[in-house]
Measured scan of single mutants.
Amino acid sequence: MQRVNMIMAESPGLITICLLGYLLSAECTVFLDHENANKILNRPKRYNSGKLEEFVQGNLERECMEEKCSFEEAREVFENTERTTEFWKQYVDGDQCESNPCLNGGSCKDDINSYECWCPFGFEGKNCELDVTCNIKNGRCEQFCKNSADNKVVCSCTEGYRLAENQKSCEPAVPFPCGRVSVSQTSKLTRAETVFPDVDYVNSTEAETILDNITQSTQSFNDFTRVVGGEDAKPGQFPWQVVLNGKVDAFCGGSIVNEKWIVTAAHCVETGVKITVVAGEHNIEETEHTEQKRNVIRIIPHHNYNAAINKYNHDIALLELDEPLVLNSYVTPICIADKEYTNIFLKFGSGYVSGWGRVFHKGRSALVLQYLRVPLVDRATCLRSTKFTIYNNMFCAGFHEGGRDSCQGDSGGPHVTEVEGTSFLTGIISWGEECAMKGKYGIYTKVSRYVNWIKEKTKLT
């Protein structure tokens, strides 16, 4: 034993070699072989497995989906700052455009905790909710729209109204504003409101030439003092309507412009014939205590009207009353817009006519005020429907199939267009061939041609 100890002390290297040989010859039971080890760690190889990531292109799944990435790591994937920024906006807080917040056709661009709407022409605001041009839906104005110097929408209202708090709607500024039905039992019968379409306001006024200088022999019209197929109006439903009495009662109609003036057809009036105007009328054979009678003290036909040349060209006249009318729910003026808007309103496509005229061709006159909704007829169809001249200051309205029309005794009465609950004068009943005849239409004086003249002559002093 002493000898062994001496050998170990003198030859430590020998001992180490012996131990190493023993270990190498022993069977290893701690580690699995290569094949079995792979069965336990069965993990798919990654895209760049075996390579240094710093030297390969980034992978979106590896960089940002398996674990949260930084902007720089995302930049490695896209290799483009702009594309990385677009991805980053949604990656950080989701897609803010998912709810489609942009209105009126706006395009949404996502941002971090926010979004941006790219608005089409005519709109602005956070969600493109603000109209900035009158060309689109009248700028959301209830009545009139004008573009300011910086191309912003400025709404306005006709006389007797003021802008509401929203700067879009119009509200009454006087007790009985024009064009409004205020009798409670008839307010439910107000005709369907007309909503502004998209309009090209630059070209809204037709490029028409008034044929002022045409000389033409007097034409022989049949029954051209021209509501057939209409309905009984309720008291106060058309408070701007008046009836004219002269040699015979209810020979023509008219509309209240203001307390002192009536507008009617020029062919209705004769110099030297006494005319009485009755406002607030409903049943011409009954006294309903809503009527107001006034005498006409002055007749002003349009300066281009000449019955000797043509009885229905420039067929418009103004009547001055001896005493002002007292405005109330049964006696209310009709609204008159400017030339541009009167023309736009007419193009809405349908209007209402009213009167006490004959209820059928050569038949009896109506006792109760009649009204009828009539569609506008395109000019080409209008011209083809008659052998008589249709001037540019006239328009056609009615039904091709016949059966409904204005008729004798309705002449001078109103053709009105309702705009968001307020009625505007767009025409004056003038003439036609018979009444409600198939293929024939009622012919009306186009008020847009005469609004400046009306307003100039009827100013209240």
Rank of each mutant, 00 (worst) to 15 (best):
I136S: 14
V368K: 14
S169T: 11
R46Y: 02
G122V: 03
E420C: 08
Y312V: 07
W118F: 10
E208K: 09
P301D: 03
K347S: 13
Y352F: 13
E82W: 04
T16L: 12
D150W: 07
F238M: 11
D200L: 10
Y450C: 01
T271D: 06
D110E: 12
G409M: 14
F71G: 02
E129S: 05
K109P: 02
S385A: 13
Y371Q: 13
E340M: 08
K45S: 02
W431D: 09
P375I: 08
N343V: 04
A149S: 13
V199A: 05
G398K: 06
I454R: 00
T445R: 01
C407K: 04
G105Q: 10
F87D: 03
V248K: 13
I428N: 01
V374H: 02
E67W: 00
S70I: 05
E320F: 02
G349L: 04
P333Y: 00
N310V: 03
T422K: 05
K446I: 01
G363W: 05
L130Q: 13
T29C: 13
N258H: 04
E116R: 06
Q57N: 01
P120T: 09
H400G: 14
G413P: 02
N304D: 11
L325Y: 03
N304V: 04
R364F: 06
F424K: 00
P175L: 09
L376N: 04
W431E: 08
E79D: 15
F87E: 02
A265C: 03
E193M: 15
K137D: 12
G21D: 04
S220I: 14
S329N: 15
N127K: 10
E159C: 04
Q2E: 13
T16G: 14
T389G: 15
A337C: 03
L346K: 03
E434F: 10
S49M: 06
K247H: 09
N147T: 15
E231R: 12
E420I: 06
T445Y: 05
Y352R: 06
G13F: 12
V257D: 00
N283H: 10
T417R: 02
L41A: 05
H302R: 03
K455D: 04
A380P: 09
T186R: 12
R62E: 00
C69N: 00
Q241M: 15
T209Q: 13
L189Y: 15
V92P: 07
C18K: 03
Q96T: 07
C18T: 11
N151I: 09
P175F: 05
K45A: 03
W118R: 14
V227D: 15
G13P: 14
C268M: 01
F360Q: 09
S156L: 09
Q237E: 06
C178K: 00
K455Y: 05
K247V: 13
T29G: 15
G427L: 00
I390V: 14
E116M: 12
S70P: 01
Q90M: 11
V277Y: 01
A366Y: 09
E171C: 05
L14Q: 04
Q2P: 14
K260V: 04
I136F: 14
V451A: 14
A192D: 13
I15G: 07
T85Y: 08
T190M: 05
D111M: 12
R364L: 08
R298N: 15
I297L: 09
P414Y: 07
K39D: 09
S430A: 09
C252P: 01
S11N: 13
R140W: 12
D223P: 13
S430P: 04
P301M: 11
V227S: 12
N48F: 01
G122P: 12
M8Q: 14
F388K: 11
L60F: 06
K293W: 10
Y341W: 07
F121N: 08
E142G: 08
P375T: 14
D212F: 12
S49T: 10
K89R: 12
L376Q: 06
S329V: 05
F87M: 04
S204N: 07
G363C: 04
R162Q: 09
P375Q: 12
N313D: 08
G363K: 10
A397F: 02
G413Y: 15
C102L: 01
N100K: 11
T264C: 07
I297P: 01
G351W: 02
D249L: 07
S187T: 15
G50T: 02
W88T: 03
F196Q: 12
T386I: 09
E401F: 09
E208P: 15
K146N: 09
D249G: 12
Y391I: 05
L325Q: 00
Y22I: 14
Y201G: 13
A173W: 06
A207G: 13
V4A: 12
V77T: 08
F31Y: 14
T426H: 01
N100A: 06
S448F: 02
I309N: 11
I136L: 09
K362N: 13
E420H: 08
L163W: 02
R43I: 00
F424L: 01
V154W: 11
E27M: 05
V374E: 02
V277N: 00
P239I: 01
C382F: 03
R43N: 02
I210T: 15
A308S: 15
V183T: 10
N258A: 04
C28I: 03
E116N: 14
V416R: 02
S204L: 13
K152G: 13
T209Y: 11
A307Y: 08
C69W: 00
Y312K: 06
L211D: 12
C155T: 00
F388W: 10
T386A: 12
G349M: 04
V56N: 03
Y91K: 05
A164I: 06
S107Y: 07
W431C: 12
P177W: 01
K459F: 07
F345Y: 13
N36M: 11
T461Y: 12
L103V: 10
I390P: 10
Y47Q: 04
C252G: 01
K68R: 13
T190Y: 09
V248P: 10
T158K: 02
V263Y: 01
T381M: 14
K146A: 13
W240F: 03
R83Y: 10
T133P: 10
R298S: 09
T342P: 01
R83W: 05
G412I: 15
N36S: 12
L41R: 04
T445P: 00
W431L: 09
W88H: 04
G355R: 15
N138D: 06
S204P: 10
L372N: 12
G432M: 06
D405S: 15
N59Y: 03
A279H: 01
P172A: 11
N222P: 08
V368D: 05
N135H: 11
I336E: 00
I390D: 10
G21E: 07
C335S: 01
R43Y: 01
I390G: 08
V154A: 13
G349K: 07
R3D: 10
T186H: 11
V195Y: 13
V195I: 10
R140F: 10
E165L: 10
G236H: 09
N127W: 11
N310R: 05
S423Q: 07
D33P: 06
L163F: 01
G398L: 04
E259K: 07
E401G: 10
A207C: 06
Y441C: 03
E27G: 10
N283V: 10
V227I: 12
G50Q: 08
C18D: 02
V30Q: 14
R43Q: 02
K459P: 05
N203K: 08
Q216D: 11
